[in-house]
């Protein structure tokens, strides 16, 4: 079978029901796409199929034979993907990094479809699991990419203004860093932009990914 992947045509000898993930990793030898659960639960295996974010661990390879597949290996060949990677580095997002291929793919797919997503759009799209808890760093990178100026008070709950803290106060939390020379390249953000109030995404609002619909 022929696969169109990262702009190339590749011949693979795999059964049609083999998950795309394992064709990418074992047949094509590209290991940037990760196996985390095999059940479309975590999103570490996310790739783009015709621009649509797709969980490759439950996607039969035969279902994407006529599609253009993009994996993390080609992410910087895409202008949007390159911008996402730059934002990930700027905001120092990854920790262990294992889920981040999938996170970067999800971010890229969203921004390619909608260059100016709302906060709700971002929350609906960025649903992959991260066991290191980089969610706030992802949020900061996404708001930056989406051009959403976060002017909400750091904590609306600090009681609706009573005792609420501005970002400046938070930066003092790492006062030792404030005003320090830029060291070793990019200086990382020291305070997270606040989420706007009432943006929590309920689980039922999470989008179905392509392969979940297919029920593979």
């Amino acid at each position: 079978m022929q696969l169109r992947i990262n702009g190339e045509s590749r011949e693979v000898d795999a059964d049609g029901d083999t998950p795309l993930l394992w064709v990418i990793r074992d047949d094509l030898g590209m290991t940037g796409t990760k196996y985390g659960c095999g059940l479309a639960q975590c999103g570490a295996c996310s790739v783009m199929v015709d621009g649509v974010i797709t969980r490759s661990c439950v996607t039969p390879v035969e279902s994407v034979a006529d599609s253009a597949i993009t994996t993390i290996e080609a992410i910087e060949q895409d202008a949007v993907g390159k911008r996402v990677v730059e934002a990930w580095v700027k905001h120092q997002v990854p920790q262990c990094g294992y889920c981040q291929s999938g996170q970067v793919m999800a971010a890229t797919a969203l921004l390619k479809e909608n260059a100016s997503p709302s906060a709700e759009d971002v929350h609906a799209a960025m649903v992959n699991l991260c066991r290191c808890g980089t969610y706030n760093a992802i949020e900061a990178a996404m708001m930056d990419l989406a051009g959403i100026e976060n002017t909400a008070p750091e904590s609306e709950a600090a009681g609706g203004g009573e005792g609420g803290l501005g970002a400046g106060t938070i930066a003092a939390g790492v006062a030792v860093a404030a005003g320090a020379a830029v060291a070793g390249g990019a200086l990382v953000r020291r305070s997270r932009k606040a989420k706007a109030a009432g943006q929590e995404t309920s689980p039922e609002a999470r989008p179905e990914t392509r392969n979940e619909e297919e029920g593979a």
Binding site: Q92, G97, A180
Partner: peptide
């Protein structure tokens, strides 16, 4: 110059582009 400063982590780009290598 560097201890005590928010030096950028060295592995951010490789971990954002799928180049980081894990045992798996």
């Amino acid at each position: 110059r560097w201890i005590g400063k928010p030096v950028a982590r060295l592995d951010m780009h490789e971990k954002s582009t799928g180049k980081a290598v894990y045992a798996i």
